[in-house]
Design a protein around this nucleic acid. Structure first.
Lengths: 343, 343
DNA sequence: CGAACTGGATGAAACGTTTTAGGCGCTATA
DNA sequence: TATAGCGCCTAAAACGTTTCATCCAGTTCG
């Protein structure tokens, strides 16, 4: 119970304290016989390294934190899995913190992480404006990598997916299918992704010189429930004005829309086509498999983790980088229904 | 950059080092004027407590870890959210570790957590047999609470949901609807939940003296893909032998089944009824909303966290407890189709 | 044979806290 | 006027590592 420490191990093995430390950290510098004696002592005493002491000495820990907006959002869980691979491969530990889209919680987490002198932080910040707590981390020399948000800041690395391109891809697909009345569902528009995807859709329309109409319906959040409500509003429109296709800012909304439409007897994709965004696992598993814009989520996590480790190791010589991935259109049944253009 | 420490703060404020510590930990024991001087010094120097040193002194950290089988499984994310509330309410920090159903990774995590002298561990262990790494933690005095697995161990607390009851509820519901050929889908059977839910279903059958048939189809995992494959196998049966209802060990399987069946033109619930388990968010959001056995997931997380904190505080006087929650049958469209009993 | 290395081990310092025992100057009490 | 008590503060001892400067005994080389 009274946890054995390195000193007791040393005494037990009949060597000095420094030698035990060498066995632990530079095994090749100690003679095989001695090494074995120390290892034996370690196992018989059940010694386990005290990481607090080690960190205290080292000045920083070996854990990397990822602060996500919502642990329950499949997008982030995939990013986490990607980051895990890299971080654990480097012998460090990834801990997941959940801000729950709440800046106060985010701040509290960052403060605690700073106290813990974490090796680095991967974060999708709640706010877009100035981020004093984050800047403080950076000043202190803790590497920060922005995930899927805020590309373009000079004092930190970032990884992101080209949301404007994603919006284009979705819109091009729907236009290819001959849709003339299209709705974009998502919100709040203060979220950069939501705005960018819409910008991409609008740009696609303009580039083609299409006469199609793109209407925006702003939702209060990016959830299934919000999707249901948005669908209700669509259904309130007279059929002639009703969009024949909806492009949703994420798959949760799309699933909500899908559920509400089918519940009300509107056929997908015959009456209304749906395209989502993110391509979460459940997108393909929906009763009407959902077309979606796929983001390379685990790559996003991996790239972020790699940038972080790189910065943590190279220190001052590090030059911040901004990696942008390209999304991909995945067409499934929910939008696979070409229609005649109506004049 | 060269992080200020408590000593510099003391010098800056013209007090002793111990006084600064008192301002931080027992503010009321220091005279208001001095306190203010110290606080000013802290802000001007941008001092941030070094948690490693604090932990080293204290002998343990203020973080609690939760080790889940899969961060991407909505069941666990909800448990995490419940636990978070309690842990953060107590001023501690919850970190999420992902074992990914891999005992090696689980072990590695536990070892690192032990090195970090975490305050406690909430865990759903990968294996059911003896758990040496976990026992080692307990011997060292680190509280461990089992989550949804392994109730009945003497040396640790646990929280769980009554899976046998859950199986009963589902089966009773299907029998009430008049089904005579029912399949139970899930696996591997070495997972206690999978076995218990089946046991409950079988018990319900027996208690009623029903003549209905309960066939078991074992899957290799509890995923959407496994559900699809299981559905394929069901479809291979001649229609007369085909079950009219399937009870799935979890919602992921149920969603997979639902997708495959509808893709193959089998109508749910008219041709085949489906009942899932867990009632994840997507269950209600499926195109045919899924009947499911709901587990009080956040309560599970909350209760686990409370037990943990209790144990961490009371120390030796603690008596281990095993909390069991009761599941609830949520009937939705996927099984809402009474049928005439066929003889 | 002396000098220069070398592999292997040692001892002590340092990391930044918290805590404990005590010190100092007052005031209230007997 | 002693004494005890109190409020406020200080000094020093831990906590368990890692690292760095040494040291020692061989070995190699000129």
């Amino acid at each position: 119970m009274a946890t054995a420490n390195i000193k007791e191990v040393a005494r037990h093995a009949g060597v000095s304290l420094g030698t035990v430390s060498n066995v632990l950290n530079r095994p090749d510098t100690v003679a095989p016989a001695t090494r074995q004696r120390v290892l034996d002592a370690i196992t018989t005493l059940g010694y386990v390294r005290n990481d607090s002491a080690r960190q205290l000495r080292a000045g920083h820990s070996r854990t990397v934190a990822i602060v996500v907006l919502d642990v329950a959002n499949p997008f982030f869980t995939d990013v986490v899995r990607g980051a895990e691979q890299v971080i654990e491969g480097a012998g460090a530990m990834l801990v997941v913190c959940n801000s729950g889209e709440d800046s106060a919680r985010e701040r509290r987490h960052l403060e605690l992480l700073e106290e813990q002198r974490v090796r680095g932080v991967l974060i999708t910040p709640v706010d877009h404006g100035p981020q004093p707590t984050l800047d403080k981390l950076i000043e202190r020399g803790i590497p920060v990598v922005l995930v899927d948000r805020g590309t373009g800041r000079a004092n930190r690395c970032s990884v992101a997916v080209d949301d404007v391109l994603g919006g284009r891809l979705a819109m091009d697909h729907l236009l290819d299918q001959g849709h003339q009345r299209i709705a974009y569902l998502g919100g709040p528009l203060t979220i950069a992704q939501v705005a960018d995807r819409h910008a991409g859709a609008a740009a696609a329309l303009q580039d083609r010189g299409s006469t199609a109409e793109l209407r925006v319906a702003v939702t209060t959040s990016l959830t299934v429930a919000a999707g249901r409500r948005a669908a209700e509003e669509l259904l309130a429109l007279p059929v002639r004005k009703r969009p024949t296709a909806v492009f949703c800012a994420n798959d949760l909304i799309a699933l909500g829309v899908l559920q509400e439409l089918t519940a009300r007897g509107v056929r997908v994709p015959i009456d209304v086509a749906i395209v989502g965004y993110d391509d979460i696992e459940f997108a393909g598993a929906a009763a009407v498999p959902l077309s979606s814009v796929r983001q390379p989520r685990d790559q996003l996590g991996r790239a972020a983790a790699e940038l972080l480790l790189e910065e943590a190791e190279s220190g001052d010589t590090h030059r911040h980088r901004h990696v942008v991935f390209q999304p991909e259109m995945v067409v499934r049944r929910s939008s696979d229904q070409p229609r005649r253009t109506r004049r």
